[in-house]
Computed example of a mutant assay.
Amino acid sequence: YGDVDSATRLFSSTANKSNYIYTAMFKGLISNNMAEKAFDLLDEMEIKPDSFTLAILFKACAELANDRALKIGRKLLDEMPENYRNDNITSTSAINMLMKFGDIQSAERIFRSNKKKDIITYNAIIKGYVGNEMFERALDLFEQIHLNFDSVTYTVVFNACAGLTNDRAMKIGKELLEEMPENYRNNVVVLNSAMHMLMKLGDIQSAEQILRAHVK
C-alpha cells in the first residue's frame, strides 16, 4: 500500500490541478482499494476529466459496482465527448464497466460507435458477454474479428467455449487451440483456460497432453 496520506497532502497543496494530477491521485486511491474516496474527489473536481481520467474512473466504477458507482459511471458516460468514443483505452474501460453493470445494450452501443477498434476492444466485449453468460454472442463476435489475436483473446474465447459446451463450441475451441501460435503455449492463463475448456468438453486426454507438455 502506498502512502495515501502524503499523496493527499501533496495533492491538496498543488494549485491549478491538471487532469494529469487528478488522474495520478485517482489511480493511487483506486490501487489502494479506496474507490469511494476517488468518487469523493471527483465530486470536488473543477475541470472536465480527459480521456485518461475517464478510463481510470470507469475502472473504479466497474470494481465498486454499487449504486453510487452505477450512477457516477452513467453520468460520466453521458457527458463524455463524442471523440473519446474512438479512444480505445477509454471505450474499452467504458465497455468493461457497462458489462460489469449488466448493461449489455449500452456496452454494444459504445463498441459499435468506435471506428478504430483494436483487439483489446474486441476482447473487452467478448469477456463481457462471457461474464454475462452470453456465450453464443461471444462466439458470434469472435468470428467477425479480422485482427491478430493476443493472449486475452485466446483466454476469453476458450472460456466462452467452456461455457457453451455444444458442437459449435467444440469446433471453434479445438480449431483455435490447434492454430494457436507457439509463444502462447507457455502462457499459464491461456493454458489453464484451454484445459478448462477441454475438460468441460469431455476431452480429458487433450487436457492432460497440454498439462504434460507444460510440465516438461
Rank of each mutant, 00 (worst) to 15 (best):
residue 11 F to D: 01
residue 11 F to Y: 03
residue 12 S to P: 13
residue 17 K to S: 00
residue 19 N to P: 00
residue 19 N to I: 00
residue 20 Y to E: 14
residue 22 Y to N: 01
residue 24 A to Y: 04
residue 26 F to E: 00
residue 27 K to N: 08
residue 28 G to E: 04
residue 28 G to C: 09
residue 32 N to G: 07
residue 33 N to Q: 14
residue 33 N to V: 12
residue 33 N to G: 07
residue 33 N to M: 14
residue 34 M to Y: 10
residue 36 E to T: 06
residue 36 E to R: 09
residue 37 K to Q: 13
residue 37 K to I: 05
residue 42 L to D: 00
residue 42 L to E: 00
residue 43 D to W: 07
residue 44 E to M: 15
residue 45 M to I: 01
residue 45 M to N: 03
residue 47 I to A: 07
residue 47 I to F: 07
residue 47 I to D: 13
residue 47 I to G: 13
residue 48 K to Q: 12
residue 48 K to R: 09
residue 48 K to I: 12
residue 49 P to W: 08
residue 50 D to Y: 07
residue 51 S to A: 12
residue 52 F to R: 05
residue 52 F to I: 06
residue 52 F to H: 10
residue 53 T to I: 06
residue 53 T to H: 12
residue 54 L to S: 10
residue 55 A to R: 02
residue 55 A to F: 02
residue 55 A to L: 03
residue 56 I to A: 11
residue 57 L to G: 03
residue 59 K to L: 13
residue 60 A to Y: 09
residue 61 C to K: 06
residue 62 A to E: 02
residue 66 N to Y: 08
residue 66 N to Q: 14
residue 68 R to W: 06
residue 69 A to Q: 09
residue 70 L to P: 07
residue 72 I to P: 07
residue 73 G to C: 03
residue 76 L to T: 03
residue 76 L to Q: 05
residue 77 L to G: 01
residue 77 L to V: 00
residue 78 D to P: 00
residue 79 E to N: 12
residue 81 P to E: 07
residue 82 E to I: 13
residue 82 E to R: 15
residue 84 Y to C: 14
residue 86 N to P: 08
residue 88 N to Y: 15
residue 88 N to V: 15
residue 88 N to C: 14
residue 89 I to N: 09
residue 91 S to V: 14
residue 91 S to C: 11
residue 92 T to L: 01
residue 94 A to C: 11
residue 94 A to V: 05
residue 94 A to S: 12
residue 95 I to S: 00
residue 97 M to T: 03
residue 97 M to Q: 04
residue 98 L to P: 01
residue 98 L to Y: 05
residue 100 K to I: 02
residue 102 G to P: 01
residue 102 G to T: 02
residue 103 D to T: 05
residue 103 D to M: 03
residue 104 I to K: 02
residue 107 A to C: 06
residue 108 E to S: 11
residue 108 E to P: 10
residue 110 I to R: 06
residue 110 I to V: 08
residue 113 S to E: 14
residue 114 N to D: 13
residue 115 K to I: 05
residue 115 K to V: 08
residue 115 K to T: 10
residue 118 D to C: 05
residue 118 D to Y: 08
residue 119 I to F: 07
